[in-house]
């Protein structure tokens, strides 16, 4: 899953991380923040302290989302889902459970469908992420998006981005050879409105290439 990059890049990255660590150790702030409430009082009472603290708690992240390169600073604990929704305002990717139990947050990372809620953004250095917003070209929809509309593969629409990202991957992976196989390989995406019948119709239609509407 790791992005392709040269060993040299990796070393540089690791070195910069290492030097950051040294800095953190020298400043003592990181440890203090993590462990000692008195420092937190300081951090809270002095606005500048808190801002520095906030910055020191982040790591640099270079990530490509829907073809756009982003150079960001993120907290190590920030999930890819929260990064997309709260920082990049790409709210098409949905939070349904936040624990890997519903599939609403499904996105493609380096071409593979994964759950963004269980993915730490800080571990996605140089990754290529595709979200629902990255599928269509303006008004020109991806065939799977067309098929979901035509076959009414949704009602409330909240699980839909995850279903569509999953459905595209399902075909690409070669797991859409029968309705039964589609049902199994789409079972990681819960639809509480119960549109499963139509979701399978939509994926079957795209798989068979029949996109006339």
């Amino acid at each position: 899953m790791a992005a392709k990059k040269s060993t040299k890049d990796k070393l540089i990255e690791d070195e910069s991380n290492a030097s950051r660590r040294d800095f953190l150790k020298k400043s003592g702030l990181f440890t203090a923040l993590a462990l000692a409430p008195p420092s937190l009082v300081m951090a809270s009472e002095n606005k500048w302290d808190e801002k520095i603290a906030g910055y020191l708690e982040t790591v640099p992240l270079s990530i490509e989302v829907n073809g756009v390169k982003q150079n960001l600073n993120v907290e190590p604990r920030t999930t890819l889902l929260d990064l997309l929704r709260e920082q990049l305002h790409l709210t098409g990717t949905k939070k349904g459970c936040d624990h890997g139990q519903c599939g609403a947050c499904t996105v493609h990372v380096n071409g593979t469908r994964i759950l963004s809620c269980l993915t730490l953004a800080s571990m996605q250095q140089n990754a290529q992420v595709t979200t629902i917003e990255g599928l269509s070209k303006g008004k020109k929809l991806h065939p799977m998006q067309e098929a979901f509309i035509k076959n009414d593969g949704f009602q409330c629409g909240y699980c839909t981005p995850g279903q569509i990202m999953s459905g595209i991957a399902c075909i690409k992976e070669g797991h859409a050879n029968s309705r039964e196989e589609i049902r199994e390989y789409m079972s990681g995406n819960i639809c509480r409105c119960g549109a499963y019948h139509n979701i399978v119709d939509a994926i079957t239609e795209v798989k068979e290439g029949g996109m006339s509407s």
């Binding site: 790409l90 098409g92 629902i132 929809l141 998006q145 979901f148 509309i149 629409g157 981005p161 569509i164």
Partner: peptide
Amino acid sequence: NRVDGFAKVTG
């Protein structure tokens, strides 16, 4: 088709 379909399938 659902009139809000475009909005829902594009996020």
